[in-house]
Design a protein around this nucleic acid. Structure first.
Length: 287
DNA sequence: AGGGGGACCTGTGCGC
DNA sequence: TGCGCACAGGTCCCCC
């Protein structure tokens, strides 16, 4: 499912269900997702109060009152759903849609107030770990991440410097989480189209004003997508079962053959493959 | 060292 | 209807 806007949407959905609540039980239904769960995963979570839920790039960070943080990544198909146990549900409670196939409910979190949060992930590319919060800066998956695309550290000058000397296509560079953290295939395609830059162009050939334009496009597409609740492909739903609607604003992603939406452009959207992944773009206005 | 390709998984949609 | 293939929002590892 998730790039940064979708993960942020999930975070916002989990907050009312979990923040301030203690975990009463955590069922782990298999030994691993993409990697093995850490030692005593369930035991270390049980009894902990979730003080806050943060996000870094595509990672969710659940801050526990015992001093550890649970980190989670949704991979390609991970999703959380929330239910409130019928007996404890109150009018107006966040009673949320159940996921499709229970056989892929790999982790079930039961919290105070009858809250049941299920992690469902058919492809199991997701990931969960626990670490002492004070060691966060050295955590292997977090240490090398670049700046958030809508944060103050991401700018035209930063991007220009980060891309210097890179022979790789700009499409691949923007997917590199150490350059900018949180973009995936959708938002890279969309940002390059907005910036009028070809996905095939060498990253190093985007200095100065073009880097400024690209950074602006990246920021804009991420901010708009967060505001829209992310993009819902297939049956993706946020934790509350609602759908993001940014997919209706896609200009190029999965739009092969449709007219280019750029003002005054007579091109049509094409699809190519780069590093084994689809890229959609307009070769008329993206140079 | 940077960059490309394959691997990890299951599900779905399409053409025949 | 069934079958096989292509493809899917991510990232890690290996090899050049």
């Amino acid at each position: 499912m998730p790039e940064l806007p979708e993960v942020e949407t999930v975070r916002r959905g989990l907050i009312p269900a979990l923040e301030g609540r203690r975990l009463l039980a955590v069922e782990v239904n298999r030994p691993n997702l993409r990697f093995a769960f850490p030692d005593r995963f369930s035991e270390r979570l049980t009894g902990q109060r979730i003080e806050r839920i943060d996000r870094r790039a595509k990672y969710l960070l659940l801050r526990l009152d015992g001093g550890e943080t649970m980190i989670g990544h949704l991979g390609m198909s991970g999703r959380f759903s929330i239910e409130v146990d019928g007996a404890e549900a109150q009018p107006g409670d966040f009673v949320y849609a159940a996921p499709a196939k229970p056989k892929h409910d790999h982790v079930v979190f039961r919290a105070e107030g009858g809250v049941v949060v299920r992690y469902n992930d058919p492809r199991r590319f997701g990931y969960m770990d626990l670490f002492p919060t004070e060691t966060e800066a050295g955590h292997p998956v977090l240490a090398a991440l670049g700046p958030e695309p809508h944060g103050n550290d991401f700018s035209g000058p930063y991007l220009s410097t980060a891309l210097a000397g890179r022979r790789t296509p700009i499409k691949a560079a923007l997917l590199d989480q150490s350059i900018v953290a949180g973009l995936g295939n959708i938002y890279v395609c969309e940002a390059l189209h907005r910036a009028g830059i070809s996905p095939r162009r060498a990253a190093a050939s985007i200095p100065g004003v073009r880097a400024e334009r690209l950074a602006t496009a990246v920021r804009a597409v991420i901010v708009e997508a967060i505001e829209a609740g992310g993009s819902s492909l297939k049956d993706f739903a946020a934790t509350d079962g609602s759908l993001g609607y940014f997919q209706h604003r896609f200009r190029v992603y999965d739009r092969l053959g449709t007219p280019c939406p750029s003002d005054g452009c007579s091109g049509a959207i094409q699809r190519i493959v780069q590093s084994g992944r689809s890229t959609w773009f307009c070769s008329t206005c993206q140079r």
